[in-house]
Amino acid sequence: MKGLQNILLILICTIFCFSCSEKQDFNQYEDLSITPTLEASIFFVKVQESLINRVVDVSFFTQDFNFDAFEEAFFSDRVLEGVITYELENTTDKPIEIEIEFLDENDILLDTEVFTMPAAPTAVLIRERAYGNTGKSLEILRNTSKLRLNASNFGDNTSTSGIPDAAIVLRSSAQFTLRLK
């Protein structure tokens, strides 16, 4: 009887301990890449035509804005590539130029983005600017601490567009791919 017990015990143990398994390669984990692409708006600026008409100079608006989003460690350490999409709409009666300067924390100019548009009626200008890979250097974004917006009026200071709430509107959004692993 004792022999039977031992045989059964060995059988059970065999089932438990010597079960089969296909070959596994847990080192594959090292090759796992987690790189989501995130998208959000960045900034929106609206300058009304009535305001432009108040300024006699060509340059009717210059303003620095603190912008630390690209400097945040979560972003700057992980960003792989991205695209910033600008959308410029001009419903004023004036040809205009918008210049966006990317500045670091010491106000050193890193990059400039210039848009020129004829007076209304005109189509919305959409520009996609790539960073990383074949686009501009990601270092521009990583070091950007401030944005400077310069706006120039190449028209007069009296005319008004017939379009309601005439203004220059700059919209922007970004898609960036980040490496989480």
Binding site: S41, F44, K46, V47, Q48, S50, L51, F65, N66
Partner: peptide
């Protein structure tokens, strides 16, 4: 709900130097 930094200049004229990002 956010749409990024929003600057409506005529509305923000008196306080354009504030830190919009922060």
């Amino acid at each position: 709900t956010i749409e990024g930094i929003e600057i409506n200049v005529i509305q923000e004229l008196a306080d354009l130097n504030r830190d919009f990002w922060q």
